[in-house]
């Protein structure tokens, strides 16, 4: 027997009570619990049934987050590798090379330092804006957190800046290599963010409209 609308709302409220605040996670747990409850043969109250599922609900959120985090980091690495062999993406490392050439030949050292800092900071700012903008739908969607996690890897270049500074100053080769990879990671990160943003909007517009 199909579960009623009131029972669906009851399960949803119970999940909120247990602290499952993201709607995409609630959707999956709710569907599983509703399907299982519909198939119980003996008469059981919904409240009693849900109490037996508490530990499953608690565990669920953590393991989901972990799996997704590494999936997106892997996708980021895959995208970066693609820049060096996919014909339609080769223009990215080439453009970075031209940009470096412009910096090295035309700009004074002080402006190169500014150019370097801006190229590292701006992509990070864009992705933070995407997630935290006030009218964004992402606050209620767990998957949107991955938008942040994707950029964790490119952020490493910013964290390393202090440690790398003496070596970077000594050797222009190390400096440009460091800058090159920082830019490649940042561009790939932003591309991943945009792709995921589109997917999230598409999938969860359905959820929000219900």
């Amino acid at each position: 027997m199909a579960i009623s609308k009131e029972e669906v709302i009851y399960i949803d409220n119970y999940l909120k009570f247990l602290g499952v605040k993201y709607m995409d996670i609630r959707l999956e747990i709710l569907d599983h619990l509703a399907s299982e409850f519909e198939n119980i043969q003996e008469p059981t109250s919904l409240g009693d049934f849900l109490r037996t599922k508490r530990s499953f609900v608690k565990r669920y959120e953590n393991q989901w987050q972990k799996a997704k985090h590494w999936a997106h980091q892997r996708a980021l690495i895959k995208r970066i590798i693609g820049y060096f062999y996919k014909p339609n993406q080769l223009f990215i490392p080439i453009c970075i090379g031209i940009f470096f050439g412009f910096n090295a030949t035309l700009l004074p050292k002080s402006l190169i330092a500014i150019s370097f800092c801006i190229s590292l900071i701006v992509p990070q700012c864009i992705h933070f804006y995407i997630y935290y903008k006030p009218e964004g739908i992402y606050k209620n969607i767990q998957s949107a957190k991955y938008i942040l996690s994707i950029m964790a890897l490119p952020s490493i270049f910013m964290y390393l800046m202090g440690i790398m500074a003496p070596i970077i100053k000594e050797s222009p080769t190390v400096f440009y290599a460091y800058w090159f990879f920082a830019m490649v990671f940042n561009i790939a990160g932003l591309q991943e963010v945009m792709t995921l943003k589109r997917q999230i909007v598409k999938t969860y517009s359905k959820l929000i409209s219900n």
Partner: peptide, 26 residues
């Protein structure tokens, strides 16, 4: 579910959300 999420993370599974009875199903 950990197995499903792992397979999804590896790019082997895709998900689709559909409305069924009074709820959404993945």
């Amino acid at each position: 579910y950990p197995a499903l999420h792992k397979l999804e993370a590896e790019g082997l599974l895709d998900v689709e959300v559909a409305k069924v009875d009074n709820r959404l199903r993945k």
